[in-house]
């Protein structure tokens, strides 16, 4: 039956009551360990403080020793983290799409512990510490989730280092 109450019309009517699909960028962010516990409303609030940046292959995202002001989530592309060695630079590994790096900067304005360079054309989402702090003050529940997320990520990295596994590339 294809009248007024046909199946397609009914489905269209139902779609009015279902939430619109999530922004693809937010889908990626929701998969990042730090933000895994955030619900959709919290991610939408977070979206206002995400800065999309495009890096060319070979371009430096941040530099070892400079003051860290925020963290990054890779949307597309690939980056490499390097640390200065005694004789030559030491590669810490590759950071892929869906991974985050630079989380240490969320805890304080200490110097970056590695240089991160784009290996290919890359898109990242930058999150700036003072903006996240302001957001956490306005929404303490979200602030708590992010703080716990950062703590868990750092805890798992410390554990890996203590267990003698390779150093984490995103420990920057």
């Amino acid at each position: 039956m294809c009248g007024l109450w046909g199946e397609s019309n009914f489905m269209n009517l139902l779609s009015l009551f279902s939430p619109p699909p999530m922004d693809p960028l937010l889908q990626i962010v929701s998969g990042v360990a730090i933000f895994r516990d955030c619900n959709r409303a919290e991610l939408e609030a977070l979206k206002l403080h995400l800065h999309e940046r495009h890096f060319l292959a070979g371009e430096i995202v941040f530099d070892e020793g400079e003051d860290g002001e925020g963290m990054y989530v890779v949307i597309r592309g690939k980056l490499r983290a390097n640390r200065k060695g005694v004789l030559s630079k030491k590669s810490l590994g590759v950071i892929q799409a869906g991974e985050s790096f630079g989380e240490m900067a969320l805890l304080g304005a200490g110097p970056r512990m590695a240089t991160v360079v784009a290996e290919e054309d890359t898109t990242v989402l930058a999150m700036f510490r003072p903006e996240l702090v302001a957001l956490a003050q306005a929404r303490p529940r979200l602030g708590y989730k992010i703080a716990m997320g950062v703590a868990l990520v750092l805890e798992s990295r410390l554990r890996r280092v203590a267990e003698g596994q390779s150093s984490e590339p995103s420990a920057t």
Binding site: H51, R53, H54, F55, E59, I60, V61, F62, E66, D67, G68, E69, G70, A126, F128, P130, E131
Partner: peptide, 9 residues
Amino acid sequence: NAFFEKTLL
């Protein structure tokens, strides 16, 4: 990009 973090701060 080079000035982004500093500008934000």
